[in-house]
Design a protein around this nucleic acid. Structure first.
Lengths: 330, 330
DNA sequence: ACTTTTCCAGGGAGCGGTCCCTCACGACGC
DNA sequence: GCGTCGTGAGGGACCGCTCCCTGGAAAAGT
């Protein structure tokens, strides 16, 4: 099942390789009759250009890597937003006529494999998703000298990024709770190695400080069980609290369960608000109020930034605004 | 930022290209001292082989495509299982030292693009996920003459596949409901263009028939809202029903909500059972009993089958067993 | 009418690897 | 001591494409 080559097509059409190449690549300096005879030959033979050969000489691959850097426990890729992001990226690349190579970097070993692969010239650019601030990957990739866009802020200074307005979102949540006349507002944080977790915490703190209230903080790690556990902790430490801002929805869902088991009514006794507005937030009872993270839009923006970078465009970071989705839990 | 080539490394090490190539590819017929001097040159120069050049001559890419064929509404890729599958596949390929190109085929246009890409020799094999029975893609890809494995049964005869035991899983669910002394057991189906939906329905029907009971069927399309709607329909048609088997969890969750709004207690008045056991199934209240689809295992099996196919191995289909996860809703 | 410019098809040199084939050299057998 | 064999390094053709360069024909200029 050998595929025909340019040369075979050229022979069939009775023209030179160069002419066929020009037709294939849509150059305009080709006489119509040559164009036609070439196209016919192409269709008759079912010719499709060999990608490797083309890559080799053009040094472009029309392929972008999406690298998901994640500890083995899988905080990020377990996240329900993962598939939304992957889909949005995929759709956007499809539109731009590019391909997507997905790589999960879960261990140091796979991290070096990723760098090797990138260095091998297989891709034109890299989209980095959800890294720890301490991650060595962003810097290592940036050093390869090809375009890198991060899906979050990272410790590597010069990596362009598209980020959520995490602090602003947290402020939105807290102000909403204040408007509902809540006085003792606790928070459950994400893992503080992550920028987004730190920013959400900072937004929460700042807003409370501005209104002269004190923070009540419990640590979580963005998983549902950690949310349940943190809520238990909070109830013990401060039984009088009347609202909880969880740094993501999974933890909010965990907190909801804990509250129900403890016999607290939501939202009457304790209001609960999450962050991200994942699908499952609308399934819970009561349905969860949440700060919507426009992940699909963020993914789209990240792809655009990366594509523009590849074309030598600007590298200005993009910050996505969030909005509040009020449901039953507040 | 020009990367060094084999030739440069060879010059630096004072040996021939061939020797460097042998060292890089770990051939054993190389004298230790040559090996050492080459390795040193490789490290000093930071040499990484150019992928395109290698692909061109070896005709292998060590890359596999995962093609998700899906209508624009996104039945499959909206599915919470999507990310689980992608992750499992990614991990497995990582282990095997292969790369993953993800392609969503949402329109006819993108379908042709997929076929073109595959024909371009960019990948060594294809893993097809979740197709409509009428999909033209499996056949088109199989015609390309490279290994294809389907993640479900398809209409294309000769495409090897890894499937769930859908009928068996449905039977498991229905028998469980019968054991709970339910007499009027309804079902909410998936979109019947999909094999899995038909098989789940068939399993339901057969099990009821075997025990002399009649089927009560409402049509859904695997989305949550369709489940809610179908449940409304069922309550209207047959107010006395005491159990519902939904063909997937999202629809079960929708049904749960409808039942609660209608004032039926779950499981006291109506037992609800889902299929797939997605994460969210354990978040609902009451937590959802479900037939667990071992999607990650299925994905792993599919990758193994594909890899074995590439090495010229057998093409026997694999059927994955499912198990029941009993929670509060039954 | 002749030269200059424009335009477009063809020829062919790479791109950076792999791998077949040749050949040198040391070990071994007789 | 000489021929044979085995081992392993080197030379170079080749994978399929792009793109620069050349050259001939047609168009434009004088």
């Amino acid at each position: 099942m050998k595929r025909p080559t340019l040369e075979v097509v050229a022979a069939r059409a009775g023209v030179s390789k160069s002419s066929v190449s020009r037709v294939i690549n849509g150059e305009t300096t080709v006489a119509p009759e040559i164009r036609d005879v070439v196209m016919r030959a192409v269709h008759e033979l079912g010719y499709v250009p060999n990608g490797a050969a083309r890559n080799l000489v053009t040094r472009r691959t029309d392929t972008l890597a999406v690298v998901v850097s994640d500890p083995p426990q899988g905080v990020v890729s377990d996240d329900p937003l993962f598939s939304a992001v992957v889909r949005a990226v995929s759709r956007e690349l499809e539109k731009a006529g590019k391909r997507l190579v997905l790589m999960l970097a879960e261990s140091d070993q796979s991290r070096t494999r990723v760098v090797q692969y990138i260095a091998g010239g297989h891709v034109d650019g890299v989209l980095l998703v959800a890294l720890h601030g301490t991650d060595s990957l962003p810097a290592a990739l940036a050093r390869q000298g090809l375009p890198v866009v991060s899906f979050n802020r990272t410790s590597a200074q010069d990596v362009p990024y598209v980020a959520l307005d995490n602090a602003g979102g947290a402020a939105l949540a807290v102000r909403h709770l204040l408007e509902r006349d809540r006085r003792r507002i606790a928070t459950i944080t994400g893992p503080l190695e992550l920028y987004e977790a730190r920013e959400r915490l900072a937004g929460y703190r700042q807003t409370l400080r501005d209104t002269g209230r004190r923070s009540i903080v419990a640590l979580g790690d963005f998983t549902r069980v950690s949310g349940a556990e943190a809520m238990r902790q909070l109830l013990e430490d401060d039984p009088d609290l009347d609202a909880v801002f969880a740094s993501n929805d999974l933890m909010a869902i965990g907190a909801l369960r804990t509250l129900q088991k403890a016999g607290r009514r939501v939202p009457e006794d304790v209001a609960v608000i999450g962050f991200d507005d994942i699908e499952a937030a609308s399934y819970t009872s009561p349905a969860l109020t949440s700060v919507r993270s426009p992940m699909a839009d963020q993914a789209t923006a990240a792809v655009h930034l990366l594509l523009s970078l590849i074309d030598g465009g600007p590298t200005d970071p993009v910050i996505m605004p969030n909005e509040l989705v009020v449901r039953e839990s507040t």
